[in-house]
Design a protein around this nucleic acid. Structure first.
Lengths: 79, 79
DNA sequence: AAATATTTGTACGTATGTATG
DNA sequence: GCATACATACGTACAAATATT
């Protein structure tokens, strides 16, 4: 062992975890439109590019859907 | 009709097409390691970030595999 | 209808970190 | 240790789709 490995997690994954928690907890319910990317980036103190990486993770997981010009929405269970 | 729509294609997709063509043509055969991202970015006259988007497209299509620290490789038919 | 504002998408530039050779 | 190659992160600007006034 090389002492304490795997304690590093990229920021965008950390943010993705935080956002996932808000979805799972119901704070961001199905159909909810998230704050804008610049707003979220500000909230999490990260760059917009980094935030968008986090969003992509959740989109890939099927938790979020992004619609250009409209916003980012929490996916509903059925669809 | 709104006159000639859909004639706009993002640069990263254009580059993805060019790269796909080189794979399909056999210029980049299975197992081949592509030039480095900075080199490819220079060849196609785009930013490295843009080139990485193109690569992601081909990875998602199953044409390429990216290995950190090693390079980007053309996927072999079988695996 | 038209102009404006909002929101996501694309593109470039730069710096630093991590994995591999 | 050093060089190479991919990964992450930040900043900036403008384009495109949508919504609002």
């Amino acid at each position: 062992m090389t002492v304490d490995r795997d304690s590093m997690e990229p920021i965008y994954q950390q943010v993705a975890r935080l956002m996932r928690a808000r979805i799972d907890s119901g704070e961001w319910p199905p159909g909810y439109r998230l704050p804008s990317e610049p707003d979220l980036a500000g909230s999490y103190q990260v760059n917009r590019d980094t935030l968008r990486k986090s969003v992509r993770v959740l989109v890939d997981e099927g938790h979020l859907a992004v619609v250009r010009g409209k916003g980012t929405f929490v996916i509903k269970p059925e669809g």
